[in-house]
Design a protein around this nucleic acid. Structure first.
Lengths: 154, 154
DNA sequence: ATTACTGCAAAGCATTTGCAAATGC
DNA sequence: GCATTTGCAAATGCTTTGCAGTAAT
C-alpha cells in the first residue's frame, strides 16, 4: 500500500458531528427552518460514516431501529446538508446517464455552466500525464478517467 | 467566444456513421450477434447527433416515426455500442448518487477499481492548478470539479 | 396557536426484463 | 428451420411528492 493513500481511521463515537452540528443549526436558522430530532439523527449518521455512501443505504439503515427516520426525511435532510456544504453529492447535475459518440473524437473533458447548461470541451496533456503518474504510483491500471468542472461562464 | 472551444459543425447527412458501421458489424460478428435493422437505425442516429444525449431522449425520438425502434432495443443497442467503444457513457458505474461528508476533508479524487469496487483517494495540486488555468482561459468560474479514474488495482 | 416537518404510501421516471412474435442467418 | 432479437408492457429500484398527523417555535 502506498504511503500517501488517504487513510480514514476514526473511532466510532467520532465527535466531528458534535463540532459541526452548531453550524448546521445556524444554517437552518438562516433559512427559517427547524431544528428537529430527525435532522439531528441523519446528521450524526452521516458523520458516523467515513466512506462514500448511498442515500438509499442510509435510508434503509434508518428505516428501522431506535433512531427511526423515514426515507423521505433522509433524502430531504441530505439535500439540506448538501446545500449547507456538509456533504457532497458525488454525482450532482447528472441525474441520468448521458452518452456521446467518441468515434474519431479524442478523449476530452467538460466545463459545464450551471446557469445555462452550455459546456465547453477541453483536453489537457498535463492532466492526463499527471493521472498516469498517480495511477502508476498506486499500481492502478487505468481504463478511463472522467473530469467535469461545474461552474458558470462569465 | 474563446477560439479553441471545440466546434462541432457537421452536416445533417454526416457520413461518419457509414465509415464506422463496418467496424460495428465486425464487432457484432465477433460476438456471434446479428446485424439487424434496428441496430443500424440506432447506430445512425447516434452518429447523427453531435452532442451529449440521454438514452431516454434517443429512445423517445425513435419510439415513433418511420424508423421506429423500441425503448428496450435502444438501450440494448447503446450498451453494445458502448462495449464496442463507439460511445461512452458519461456516467458509468455510478447508477445512483453517492454522498460523502466533506466537513474537514480536503477536496480529493478517486481511483475506482472496477473489479472490487475499492477506491483510493488522491489529490493533486498539478491537476487543480491546470484546471484553474483552463477555467481562466475560458472565462469560466469554477465551483467544483470532479475527477474519477476507472480501472483495476493490480 | 401557528407553521414547518415527518411518516407513509403512492407516484415518478429512467432503465431493465420476460416472453411471444418477428427477423437474420 | 433454428437461434437471436425485437416490441411491448410489466417490473424494478432509487428518488420525489402529497397529505394528514406530529412536533417545533
Amino acid at each position: 500500500m502506498s504511503g500517501d493513500q488517504t487513510k480514514k481511521e476514526h473511532v466510532a463515537g467520532d465527535h466531528s458531528a458534535d463540532e459541526a452540528w452548531p453550524l448546521f443549526v445556524e444554517f437552518l436558522r438562516g433559512k427559517e427552518s427547524r431544528i428537529t430530532q430527525a435532522r439531528r439523527i441523519v446528521f450524526d449518521r452521516v458523520f458516523a460514516r467515513h466512506d462514500h455512501f448511498r442515500a438509499d443505504d442510509l435510508a434503509a439503515e434508518l428505516s428501522s431501529g431506535p433512531d427511526h427516520v423515514s426515507r423521505g426525511t433522509v433524502y430531504r435532510t441530505l439535500d439540506l446538508m448538501t446545500q449547507a456544504g456538509f456533504v457532497q453529492k458525488i454525482r450532482d447535475q447528472e441525474v441520468h446517464a448521458h452518452y456521446e459518440h467518441i468515434y474519431g473524437h479524442g478523449r476530452h473533458h467538460h466545463l459545464i455552466c450551471e446557469d445555462t447548461g452550455e459546456f465547453v470541451e477541453f483536453s489537457s496533456k498535463v492532466i492526463s500525464d499527471e493521472i498516469d503518474r498517480i495511477c502508476k504510483k498506486h499500481n492502478f491500471t487505468q481504463r478511463l478517467h472522467r473530469l467535469v468542472v461545474f461552474g458558470t461562464k462569465v
